[in-house]
Design a protein around this nucleic acid. Structure first.
Lengths: 152, 152
DNA sequence: TCAAATTTAATTGTGCACAATATAATTTTT
DNA sequence: AAAAATTATATTGTGCACAATTAAATTTGA
């Protein structure tokens, strides 16, 4: 049977719900692995950014993860409390707060290295299918980010 | 260049982050449309279920949306306060709480009907691509839900 | 130059998610 | 039938997300 061209209100036909449900399940799949590192999933994402490049500002972190200071500030304070990073104002521009990994923060990377491997196992996906789905999701996000009104 | 078979810790190579970012952007895309209906995105999902079948229990809602009572109870109370639904214990089994739409709850469906159409426009996707991506995400969720250990 | 505009973080408040626990109703087992 | 186990919902507490506001530093421009 040909799928309806009229968008329906049926839950199981929604792309948004498939996306929302898959995203929450993904986070749930990471949870036991990250618990061993005493990280939440958003905290893990912050650490991924910092392991790539240390000393970024809160703004740069926010651009990369698409999160604002309302989310990041308390999250970073918790990671600071956990002894994984330090936060201090840049002397060149006192508005900016630079985030730098501590020794413990750097070290955690080694233990985190197995996390993506564990997840990949669970997915049972070819590298190709993995890459294709990931890139489709990136395109979807880009499409959704574009303003409806070009004047905006 | 051939993609690495060794799972990396680079943010932009993660499927999980593409999924997480796309899901949040999707919710953000719904936000202005749902604001007109005075609904949040999770509240909209609850309404989708109720428009399909009225009188479901909190448990059934939870199974459908994969949300527990800790999330649903306060959310349903807010929808009750908004006058969209009623909650009352089943006389056949006093443990269960049946959720029934009010007149206003039923009426809201008509105004909601245009929401999926507005989103579909923003996506600029063929029906085929839409269906394929949705079903891939459903499969991904299923795969992630399967326990690692069969004894579990 | 100095007032206005902009930028960066932090703060406040609301609403999810989800783990852990509590409570009450029902079912199962002995 | 009474005790034990199970089930359904609610409650409590933590940690995101995100809008709106605030405050301080910096940049712009009249």
């Amino acid at each position: 049977m040909k799928p309806s061209l009229i968008p329906s209100l049926l839950l199981d036909e929604q792309l948004c719900f498939a996306l929302y449900a898959a995203s929450r399940r993904m986070t749930a799949a990471y949870r036991p692995l990250l618990e061993a590192l005493e990280l939440t999933y958003p905290q893990y994402l912050v650490m991924l950014v910092l392991w790539e490049r240390d000393g970024v500002t809160v703004r740069e972190l926010g651009e990369r993860l698409q999160l604002d200071s309302g989310t990041l500030t308390p999250l970073l304070k918790r990671l600071e409390q956990a002894g994984l990073l330090g936060r201090r104002r840049r002397q060149s521009d006192e508005r900016e707060v630079a985030i730098t990994l501590t020794e413990a923060g750097h070290k955690l990377r080694e233990r985190a290295a197995e996390v993506p491997r564990c997840l990949a196992e669970k997915l049972c996906m070819s590298v190709d299918a993995f890459t294709r789905l990931r890139d489709e999701l990136k395109n979807l996000a880009t499409q959704l980010a574009s303003p409806t009104d070009p004047r905006e």
